[in-house]
Design a protein around this nucleic acid. Structure first.
Lengths: 194, 194
DNA sequence: TGAATTTCTTGCCCTATGACAAGCGTAATT
DNA sequence: AATTACGCTTGTCATAGGGCAAGAAATTCA
């Protein structure tokens, strides 16, 4: 199976030459998930991560009241991963689920770890990836504080329109930190304004 | 100047032996900041990070309305760092400020980078540190969504009492995502309940 | 196809929190 | 001591968004 341009773009980095990124890419295998399929379940230990080729997935946490809160969405070009469980080698407290049918490139932790130590520049690649994740997360917290529900919705619509189109309202609502009722009203209001 | 036990504990990691951590620690120099002093200013590029020995610092972002929002606090044992600017080599969009007088161990990026490539296991140390930061940030977003203002205050009080004691109310308020007025009322209410 | 189930919308009312403004205590400045 | 400044509290009122429940619409399944 040929590696896709998406997979190549994920491993694009100033400190990874083409031989290195090719070797990394070779360690990935194509896998598929059906709509609704659980990719990682709370309590399990994560032993791999996935590069998203097509489809949409989400991570969610279940709070004490049994309510599920979407904590992130994974679109094509994103790395589908539960960082804490994978790198700290502990059971995950989150779930990852395929929102639509997904096509992914899987790499096992043991293969990743071997390449991480072997390949010059792979740790810098990882550091850059982590840095960007951290940045995104910080922005998410910040917007949660400074922006209204409507502003958060509009930002998501602008920056990640595919999520709005593909995920059910309830999942988007918990991701934005509002109830589904409120999001429905916001959506209505936005539609009225054209 | 002798490295402190705090500094040693920061560089404690299964994949760093004592010779390695000692070499890393040697690259740090003691620096002091006065109360209110700016450690990193928006627009600058970060070229170092600091291990907090004593005192309290905070990072804050200034939004378009000119309002400052505390995005994190740094206590003894924490690493005072603006990850995005330091690792992506870009100007920072955040400020870091000493809330009280601070005593820190500084390491320059160039020294860090040289050790990162030289020392076996240092990249795993960094990955673990990043993983924990990411985890903390995700929890912060999650609690912002699931918990009430009062619950967020009580959690901070329980988990980081020094912040409550040392930082002015307004800074804590923006960190928790409430107005200073509301936080004052919450505090009053909590005091009444003993 | 029709029944069952899930998802989304809407109405009504309520509560937590925000906006603004005034007051108060403490500490530094003269 | 009076003055200013700062940080915190409190009052009044306004409002975004939540809780709950009834439908409507869409999807799934038998």
């Amino acid at each position: 199976m040929n590696p896709s341009s998406i997979l190549k773009s994920i491993y694009q980095h100033p400190q990874l030459n083409s031989a290195a990124s090719e070797e990394i890419i070779k360690a990935h295998k194509k896998v598929f998930f059906k709509k609704g399929e659980i990719i990682l379940k709370e309590g399990q230990q994560s032993n791999a991560y996935y590069c998203m080729e097509s489809g949409l997935a989400r991570a969610f946490a279940v709070n004490s009241a049994g309510k599920d809160i979407t904590t992130s969405f994974f679109s094509p070009g994103n790395v589908v991963i539960e960082v804490a469980s994978l790198f700290l080698r502990v059971p995950t407290e989150e779930n990852i689920e395929a929102v639509t049918a997904c096509e992914c490139w899987k790499i096992d932790f043991s293969d990743f770890q071997a390449l991480f130590e072997k390949i010059q520049g792979f740790s810098e690649w990882g550091r850059t990836w982590m840095t960007n994740s951290l940045l995104e997360n910080k922005l998410r917290s910040l917007h949660m504080i400074t922006d209204s529900a409507k502003e958060r919705y509009l930002r998501l619509q602008k920056e990640q329109p595919l999520i709005i189109q593909q995920a059910p309202l309830k999942q988007i609502a918990t991701y934005l930190g509002v109830t589904d009722t409120s999001l429905s009203r916001i959506r209505n209001e936005v539609a009225k304004e054209h």
